[in-house]
């Protein structure tokens, strides 16, 4: 395992990471800037600088760490930091703690350690292009259904799908067609009344969430973004708009 860990880390531990691990003055200025620290009665273990000790240790031990150790890393990088980057705004050296936490998450993911929900979402992205495993047919059907329902209220309302040359490609959170289609209806009304020239796309690229980023799975992350870009190019839109 240690070899795999090092093979994963070597190309990814860049000049900044090495410098940061070396120059962190352990001054503690970042401590009270982290919400995990203040929300836990100033628990020393929540000091941002302390959380990245794992990266330093793993590198020093040349990846020779066991499963239990990685489990402890997991507890910290998923439950004691949400990679908000606030601490960096207060660190005199602007050490990007979140970036290093992200690398640790990616390392864990490469070793098969990640929250179940995220793993499921990633499988869905790969298979269906969206996190909720909505099939292309269901997606188009949902839009059509939204159109029917909304048109009862606003006569003449249309929800364009794959309209070439539209100004906007509108993308949603995949939870919307799944659980909150009323959000899509509200948006349709606004677009209709505002006379906005927009369109949905029928093929993958319409889900603008990118949950794979949270476990540092950059490959899937990239695929998701590329899907949207592909659709935008095919439809020759000017801009991509994302749901709130």
């Amino acid at each position: 395992m240690s070899q795999e860990i090092m093979e994963f880390l070597k190309p990814r531990v860049g000049a900044r990471f090495k410098m940061w691990l070396n120059i962190c003055a352990h001054c503690g200025l970042c401590a009270n800037t982290c919400h995990y620290y203040t929300a836990n009665d100033n628990d020393p273990k929540m000091i941002p600088s302390y959380k990245i000790r794992f990266l330093k240790e793993i590198l020093r031990k040349k990846g020779k760490v066991d499963r239990d150790y990685l489990q402890r890393v997991y507890e910290t990088v998923y439950y004691e930091c949400n990679m908000c980057r606030r601490c960096t705004l207060y660190c005199p050296f602007a050490i990007d703690i979140a970036l290093m936490i992200s690398l640790l998450r990616a390392l864990l993911f490469s070793q098969g350690i990640a929250p179940e929900g995220l793993v499921r979402a990633i499988e869905n992205y790969k298979k269906f292009g969206n996190q909720m495993a909505v099939t292309d047919e269901d997606w188009v059907e949902t839009i059509e259904w939204c159109e029917e329902e909304t048109a009862e209220e606003l006569v003449g309302l249309k929800i364009p799908i794959d309209k070439k040359g539209a100004k906007l490609l509108y993308t949603v959170n995949a939870r919307e067609p799944m659980f909150y289609p009323q959000d899509m209806m509200e948006v349709a009304k606004i677009f209709h009344v505002a006379g906005e020239d927009y369109t949905y796309c029928s093929k993958p690229g319409w889900d603008d969430t990118n949950l794979s980023m949270f476990c540092g799975d950059l490959k899937t992350s990239k695929m998701i973004v590329e899907n949207t870009f592909k659709r935008a190019e095919e439809l020759e839109v000017k801009q991509v708009a994302i749901t709130e």
Binding site: R16, M19, W20, N22, I23, C24, A25, P92, F93, A94
Partner: peptide, 12 residues
């Protein structure tokens, strides 16, 4: 870590 006297500029 005293090297921060110069690496400060690069890190920031």
């Amino acid at each position: 870590k005293l090297s921060h006297y110069i690496l400060f500029f690069f890190s920031r």
